[in-house]
Design a protein around this nucleic acid. Structure first.
Lengths: 125, 125
DNA sequence: TCACTATCGCAACAAAGTCGCATTAGTAAG
DNA sequence: CTTACTAATGCGACTTTGTTGCGATAGTGA
């Protein structure tokens, strides 16, 4: 099925594009000027994820955050293989430049990873 | 306030102690022989976390998992600073021996971390 | 302009956790 | 062994986050 260009889709995309950080659905909704239904935003975000436009991070608060990460394009084997940082103060998540390195016991196979560091970011220090 | 030794508390603890892996609330409830209310189990688990008996991991499914980790005692500066592995197949999470190493841009301060690798564990390979 | 169907809005639902409150039951003192 | 104190429990209600069904709306290409 072909994707269509809708106003809602563009609004979500520009909300993400104008932020250097990952945002949750409600943060995106707050930032958007047009009014779009909650379910629709989730559908748009999930579609973007499927298409590889954005990626999803599950933070330690259990919520989903979405980011338009520049690192997504040059995904060699593991997409989204960098650390994320969640600031307790400003409630945002950002992609860190540092790649996750790990050693694995024999027999394990990693498909994806979800690594979040939690603390205070440079803007909130 | 002083902690009391209750049957429920012991039941939760032994469920965790008999498992080498981290478990979610519902997994713990299923494993217990005595019948304990959902809310109570959560309260017991949160109490254990406060007391440093167990630690909590948020997996990439957004759920909380709890583990009685041996690494918890020798926590120098950062408690729970190791990787976790979530097996897609057996739906369990285990603590990996590998410590999380990361480099941080200036100005950031990390309080805790939540790193989960997702894939297939050695038992399910 | 028209037909096709992706997308949307709304409402209902589900799962995971939390909280208030009355009741129950450890614990320690008498 | 009683008794009093209060931590802990069970129940129910509630919140939050996310998903899904369905009829209505609106891109898109012919």
């Amino acid at each position: 099925m072909k994707r269509r260009n809708t106003q809602s889709k563009e609004a979500v995309l520009s909300a993400l594009a104008n932020s250097s950080k990952a945002m949750s659905q409600d943060a995106i909704e707050k930032k958007m000027t047009v009014n779009v239904d909650r379910a629709t935003i989730y559908r748009i975000l999930n579609r973007f994820c499927d298409d590889g436009v954005i990626h999803k991070i599950i933070a330690d608060d259990g919520k989903q955050y979405f980011a338009l990460c520049v690192k997504c394009d040059d995904s060699e084997k593991m997409p989204d293989n960098h650390f994320h940082f969640r600031c307790i103060n400003c409630q945002t998540i950002e992609c860190l430049p540092s790649i996750v390195n790990f050693s694995l016991p024999a027999g394990y196979q990693v498909d994806r990873l979800n690594c979040v560091l939690v603390g205070t970011c440079k803007d909130c220090a």
